[in-house]
Amino acid sequence: MCDSPAGRDEAAWSAPSPAPGPAVDPIHVEPVDEITVTTLVDNVYDALLTGTDRVQRAPFKAGSAIAPQFETGRTTVGLMAEHGFSALVTVRRGATTHTIVFDAGLSPDAMTTNSERLGIDLSDATAIVLSHGHFDHAGGLVGLSARRGRRALPMVVHPGAWTRRRIAIPGAEPDLLPTLSKKALEAEGFRLVERRHPSLLLDGSVLITGEVDRTTEFEHGMPAAHQAWDGSEWRHDPRVIDDQALVVHLRGHGLVVLTGCGHAGAVNIVRHAHRLTGVARLHALMGGLHLSGPSFEPIIGPTVAALTELQPQLVVPGHCTGWRAQQAIATALPDAFVAGSSGTSYRMTAA
């Protein structure tokens, strides 16, 4: 994506808006005893990565497929990787366990194919959360619906997810992005829960942030080429206002924050989670941080510096984070950084 000059209105639109002090009415998120985040779809699948006591990697042989060029007529297959993101989040409080699907990847079959090869039954999911309306996070919804049948599944989504968007690079034909259809999703059995404000799920143990306060001086959002239809004209859409994150309070450790693309800005999101919950510690940050490409690489430095001050115990930057930002995070936080890969599970337990 390329930058192009933005006008005064666009600059004001993307400027930080102060949100001083703690939340007036902090949201109590019930601490959990255990959380496991399994990456179902990511941009990378590396079958040679090794696990640890807290990281379980997918098996090298995740399945087989017909391949007549081999003597047996079959070959070993791994997992699918694509420019998209999807994760399965399982939380446990005492003897009670719940599972949520967070985003659905790019293609109709990647999330369900990987789940099947990992032996994961997506029909156990209590709900699905959509981080935002971009197509690389919603493409697998049709596959999920096909696997579940038409049993109603609650989907938490920001009402801005239905926004028509395009990429309009100067000198090139505008590229219209696929737009989610509310009517089609409802017909597939998804029970839509549209919320601009924070939502508590699973007996109060999972927080969905809703719209994120933009408070940093350096996270200005998408470049001018990213546009949205406002009902009468195409306008620069820097904020992607429907961007939201998932937050869990791990007992004795602090917050676990999961992002889809992090369009609101990784630091904005973490600060917003702290402010909403009143929990000062960040235990883990996982998901897309959108620091790839010339429009975002200039903010890698201040982003990594701010994250370093937070001293997280686990950072798994994936999807749209980009290799330069991943390298910078790995250098600054060598004990916390873990390379992401489709099929990897991260298990975190209470202190």
Rank of each mutant, 00 (worst) to 15 (best):
M155G: 03
A138T: 15
P174Q: 09
R150L: 02
K182V: 00
A168I: 06
F190K: 00
T179G: 10
A187V: 03
A138D: 06
E188V: 03
R147I: 12
A161S: 14
S145E: 02
T126V: 10
T163V: 13
R196P: 08
E173V: 09
V129F: 02
F190I: 02
I167C: 10
V129Q: 04
T126A: 09
L177M: 11
G160L: 10
A187Y: 00
W162G: 07
G160E: 12
S123R: 10
L185N: 08
S145F: 02
G160Q: 09
H137Y: 10
R166V: 14
K183S: 15
P174L: 10
L176F: 11
K183W: 10
H137G: 15
V156Q: 08
S145R: 00
S123A: 06
G189L: 02
H134P: 09
P170E: 12
V129M: 06
R166W: 13
G149S: 08
G139S: 12
G140A: 07
R150I: 01
A168F: 02
T163R: 14
E186M: 12
A146P: 07
S131W: 04
L176A: 12
T163I: 12
R195Y: 01
A187W: 05
E186C: 06
E188P: 02
T179E: 14
I167R: 07
F190R: 01
